[in-house]
C-alpha cells in the first residue's frame, strides 16, 4: 500500500461525492455527497499522515477536525432541511425558488 494508492481511492471518493453533491436534487442525497467528499478527505489525510507526514500529530488533528466539520455541518444542515420541510413540505432543491437572480 502506497500513498498514491490511498490517494487514488480518496480521490475517487471525493469525485463520487462531488458528483453527488452537484447532481442530486434531494437535500439528503446532496448531503450524502458532501459527506462522501469529506470521507475521502479523511482518507487522504490519513494516507498523508501515515506516508508523508511521518505520523505528525497535525495529521491526526486534522482528521479529527474534519470529522468535526462533518458532524457539525451535517447537524446544522439537517436542522435546516427540517425547517425547509416544515415550511414547504418539500425536500428537493427545486423547491427553493423564491430567491432568484
Amino acid at each position: 500500500m502506497t500513498l498514491v494508492s490511498v490517494l487514488i481511492v480518496a480521490a475517487a471518493l471525493i469525485g463520487i461525492g462531488l458528483y453527488g453533491a452537484l447532481s442530486q436534487q434531494s437535500f439528503v442525497m446532496l448531503m450524502m455527497g458532501l459527506e462522501l467528499m469529506l470521507n475521502g478527505a479523511i482518507l487522504a489525510i490519513v494516507g498523508f499522515w501515515a506516508f508523508s507526514l511521518g505520523g505528525a500529530p497535525e495529521g491526526q488533528l486534522l482528521a479529527i477536525i474534519v470529522m468535526a466539520v462533518m458532524a457539525v455541518e451535517m447537524a446544522v444542515g439537517f436542522a435546516l432541511v427540517v425547517a425547509v420541510y416544515r415550511k414547504r413540505q418539500a425536500d428537493m432543491t427545486e423547491s427553493l425558488t423564491e430567491l432568484r437572480h
Binding site: F27, L62, E73, L80
Partner: peptide, 27 residues
C-alpha cells in the same frame, strides 16, 4: 429559511473544498 438553506448548500461544498485543499497543501 430558503436563504439559510442556500447558504448552507454552497457553504458545505465550499468548506469541503477548503478542507481538501488544506489536506493537499499540508500533505
Amino acid at each position: 429559511v430558503e436563504a439559510g438553506m442556500k447558504y448552507f448548500l454552497i457553504g458545505a461544498l465550499a468548506n469541503a473544498l477548503l478542507v481538501i485543499g488544506a489536506i493537499l497543501v499540508m500533505g
